[in-house]
Simulated assay, not measured.
Amino acid sequence: MKKVTIADVAKHAGVSKSTVSQYLNQRFDYMREETKIRIEETINELGYKPNILARSLKQKSTTTIGVIVANILHVFSTQVIRAIEDVCNEKDFHVIICNADDQPEKEKKYIDMLRAKQVDGLILFPTGKNVEQYQELISENYPVVFIDRLINGLQTDTVLLDNEKASFLAVDSFVKHGYSKIAVLSPPIEPDVTPRVERLSGYKKALEHHQLSIREEFIVSGKTTDMQSLIHHLFQLSDPPKAILATNDRSLMELLSYVKKNKLSIPKDIGLIGIDDVSFADIYNPGLTTVAQPAFEMGEKAAELLFKRIQEKEEPNQAEIYRFEPTLIQRESL
């Protein structure tokens, strides 16, 4: 079948090609309502599909952004992505989502691929291992925003939680409920993964604030595949903890799995708080006390910052770090 062109639409609707072009680009300021209706009906009747590539070349915009997530399995990541997509939908932009699996090689490949596709900007949950590539983006004034992780020395807008406060709120709540033997459970503490480093720091500062000793055997970190044995070792200590702070959703689920397998009772045998307000926290029995991140607000902020960068024609102003407040949601796990 012969491909329907913008000229075919214009001829069939009895208008000029420029009028059809204005309609397609939603420039309706001086267009009569009956003209809009006639063009819309013609497009539907002829089955016209705009040439997206040609339009992007003409407008110097693909109306597409890329989002590279460190690990899409986290609840926080999916909530942030949803918020970004909502903002983009309002602006008639498309989103390409890539999952780096915390692998620098995959992240680098995705950055190269998205730039080759000429996306208008990037939102990164950076692995932290491709600093030269990040710096190249920034030096070229390419629109880029970081979220969840801070890369020291790079001048780009970054959106993240006040992670130290998140842990502080949790430990403070434990202490107020009478706990003094408080452990922390975390994925591997890696310098480039800001939330892990800062949440551990917040945990230690909170213990010091309440004049509680920091016991190294109560600081448990490791891969998900090792979590069960690490938790078991924690409970086998001669003087085990009476409360555990799980620093993210996946650590929390490993802890809950251990509790169930070993028929432990919450909070009788162990008090529990998790950072990230997982969807099942309020329906779990007992309800799980959590420290929530404002994920949707953080995703919206990241998208807004990126669009501001995209719209700026000259060199952007000084980059800023935007910290969001965590919220303690008290339930029955203490």
Rank of each mutant, 00 (worst) to 15 (best):
V175G: 04
L169S: 01
D162T: 10
Q211D: 15
D148C: 05
K205A: 13
V193Y: 14
L161W: 06
N163Y: 06
S213M: 13
S186A: 14
S221W: 08
D157H: 14
F168V: 06
P187T: 13
V175S: 00
V159H: 07
P195A: 01
A183I: 00
V171L: 07
V193E: 08
V197P: 06
I189Y: 05
P195S: 08
D148R: 00
V193P: 09
E216A: 11
K204W: 04
N152C: 01
E164L: 03
I151T: 09
D162M: 07
L207A: 06
V197M: 11
K165N: 12
K205R: 10
V197T: 10
P195L: 04
T156R: 03
K204E: 09
I214G: 01
L161E: 02
I219L: 05
L169M: 04
K165W: 08
A166N: 07
L185N: 03
L169Q: 03
V197H: 05
L150W: 07
V159M: 08
L169N: 00
V220F: 05
E208V: 07
T156V: 15
T158L: 10
K176A: 12
L207P: 04
V193W: 11
S167W: 06
Y179E: 10
R215H: 13
H210E: 03
P191F: 14
D172Q: 12
S180N: 14
S201N: 15
V184H: 08
T156C: 14
K165S: 12
L161R: 02
L169H: 01
L160W: 06
D172C: 01
V171W: 08
E198M: 15
I189E: 01
V197C: 07
V171H: 06
S213N: 13
D192E: 15
